[in-house]
Write a protein that binds this DNA or RNA. Structure first.
Lengths: 233, 233
DNA sequence: CGTGGCTTTGAATTACATCAAACCTTGTGG
DNA sequence: CCACAAGGTTTGATGTAATTCAAAGCCACG
């Protein structure tokens, strides 16, 4: 991480997408006093599997990936995080996954103990965090269904649809969605190889469901059909 | 569910394994006043995907499975729950998965709004629930790694080891672990077919890692080797 | 002692992985 | 400004782990 910068919570553009919005405007000072802001270059780690869970983060901009390894190098990406997302949940104070910047990112960093100490003063913060954890649990179950039971085509359709949703792009015909991560990351998120991913994207394009205007962009020609495929029809 | 029965929280044998232990002994009365106890037969639903999240539960005894379906009947079991486990987390007040008794079970049922109302009075309850959600999130990530990247053999080894752990059975050579669910459930939990599951269990037995003294029992002959396989070595 | 539902075993198929090579990009240094 | 590495992506040929389809055991229960 490069140098820290002062956060200006009151002026935060994405406050209402984060747990910070659990606090009222005039309570933000307490948060601001324990937060610092960082810029992180692509490929840099925010933390690693096995680390003490010293810090937690809010993503202000850019993309973060969470992942776990097997000893021989097989990797499963368990989530991509975007602006407004929280990271740092850790069972037993030890992180069981790694977090790495995919693009250049800006994050707000909280010392976990300081943030958790604020819970006494503002229980709404903890409620909000429980709500976030609950949402993530639901998303994790969706991903288990995807990994365990969907075909390559269904996995990719699901990914494109949910990416569009996460990026708040209207899924009307011909809307274009950025793919802000390389093929290897998408493959490791979907439990596929890059070759299968590439071939299956090609097939979706040949079938007239998408076009690939560039490596890092997809146009959804028939999002409704894509959605049906994603859901397993 | 059959008739309700009065709960006796003060006498609860597994209180220290549940969120209830967040309350002191003399505070249990507040919990007891909002809980009722039920016996549920195998195959009966506690709730279903799409339901309003009206109730939450603690499992007192028996085994519960959580699962999601695709429209054509493909199923992913996202978790098995045992004595002491909590269920009912729901994003946005709607349940995104179903819960069904595998064996005969006994559960404590709370009306969700009543329990969540207690959070104001006892913030420790909410902290505990956040801790539980955090643990489940970590387990969910482990399961994603399993589903996305492990081989059939590794999946089954992982399942046997974690089942032994969940059931608090010492994993020393020759300890026997009950398999309290049918093959179809295990397969749908591991993202396999029953045939592959059956064949791979057979292979583990032929390789001298386990024996199958009955359909619903496994003896772990070499748990350490099994663990190594589970972790992907 | 059937009979229906699990479980196991067998043979054939296939979706996806692996191995291999060609094809871009993008950045860098001559 | 161009040549050319270097890394990511796509395409092709082949291999295989797991699925599918099928049938035979095996209980457990009425």
């Amino acid at each position: 991480m490069l140098g820290a910068a002062l956060a200006r919570c009151a002026a935060c553009e994405i406050r209402d997408q984060t747990f910070c919005s659990a606090l009222k405007y005039d309570e933000l000072g307490r948060l601001q006093s324990i937060v610092s802001q960082f810029r992180v270059a692509p490929g840099q780690l925010l933390f690693q599997e096995g680390d003490e869970a010293g810090n937690v983060f809010n993503v202000l901009s850019g993309v973060v990936k969470l992942y776990k390894f097997l000893p021989d190098g097989r990797r499963q990406i368990t989530g991509f995080l975007f602006a407004g997302d929280f990271l740092g949940f850790a069972a037993g104070g030890i992180l069981s996954y790694s977090a790495e910047a995919v693009s250049e990112i800006v994050v707000c960093r909280f010392v976990r103990r300081q943030l958790y100490r604020l819970f006494d003063e503002f229980p709404k913060l903890e409620s909000r965090l429980l709500g976030i954890a609950t949402d993530e649990l639901a998303a994790a179950q969706d991903q288990m269904l995807l990994l365990g039971r969907k075909t390559a085509t269904e996995k990719i359709a699901s990914f494109l649809i949910s990416l569009a949703r996460r990026m708040k792009i209207e899924t009307e015909p011909n809307s274009t969605v950025p793919l802000p991560m390389p093929r290897g990351d998408i493959a490791d998120y979907l439990g596929l190889t890059v070759e299968t991913l590439s071939r299956t994207l090609g097939k979706l394009a040949r079938d007239g469901l998408i076009t690939l205007p560039g490596v890092y962009r997809v146009t959804l020609l028939r999002p409704d059909d894509l959605q049906e495929i994603a859901e397993g029809f």
